[in-house]
Amino acid sequence: MVQDVELKVEGLKKYFPIKRGIKSVMKRESPRFVRAVDGISFEIRKQQIFALVGESGCGKTTTGKLIMKLIEPTEGRIFLRGQDVSHLKSKEENLRYRKMVQMIYQDPFSSINPRFRVYDVLEEPLIIHGIGNSRSEREEMIHHALELVRLTPPEEFVSRFPHMLSGGQRQRVAIARTMILNPEFVVADEPVSMLDVSIRAEILELLRRLRDELGLTYLYITHDLSTARYFSDWIGVMYLGRIVEMGEVDMVIDNPLHPYTRALLEAVPEPEPERKEIIKSLPIKGEVPSAVNIPDGCRFHPRCVYAKMGLCDTKHPEMIEFERNHYVECHLVGKI
């Protein structure tokens, strides 16, 4: 059964201007930009989990913030259930959007106010959105949210301060705060990367259960391909502000087409001690260029071991659907 499209993003761009010194302004140098997100398009079907992976600084969080509408896009459009939400004008529209779309932040240690008790942490969004008519109604919602994330019995947890919780419990409070508004769509920005394996597994299981029970749709941002494979249905691989490969998660991971995806997969550590003497050969060269000076042609070409000069360094490759539900942006696809 093909599900409806929940979220769609079209040609999204975010350029951050670089602050210029007075000298550079006087010399009338043209302003320079960090091209954090540089023209990405994808869609996420209802109740699916779309993983956005890629190395540090490639633009994952910026994409998440654009979807959350915490920052304005430089170009491009965002649709939620077919409705263009790129520029919400009225305050009511904005508030409604902020209730439907929620974000789980990366760091469970700093995303919760340390002076708030768990109760206050969860009541705050209800008050902001004017939900619950009485204190007892809100209390019931708070208890329900805590039960949802298995912080039970709720009475035990409501009066605790964050420092009285373990890392995994804190992250569950953060998730409860996200879920209490009954969102449709959740951006989960590295929700488990700070946690160790056992808690990580627990939180991912929880998020998946909430997806099934509440019918949620997620954008899962991570640099960890193993959890991406385990947790998501679709995956987009980002490099320097663009999605270079995208598709059903099993197809992309079992049959990576883009040289960058291949390098990423090659680098993932596997719990196989037989390989401990082997020095891995990584099919990638050099360091990531800065998002201020993006290379011409294919932006991956200076690091690509397959790059064909005269083509890859001059012409930007178009995204093509190489096989059903598997897209890639590379001149040499199918030839390497």
Binding site: I199, I253, E270
Partner: peptide, 20 residues
């Protein structure tokens, strides 16, 4: 338990174990 909690990129696991 610790080893069962590791997701592996080259295999599809249906459920990760964790330590309550």
């Amino acid at each position: 338990k610790l080893l069962a909690a590791i997701p592996r990129v080259h295999e599809r696991v249906d459920k990760l174990e964790f330590i309550p």
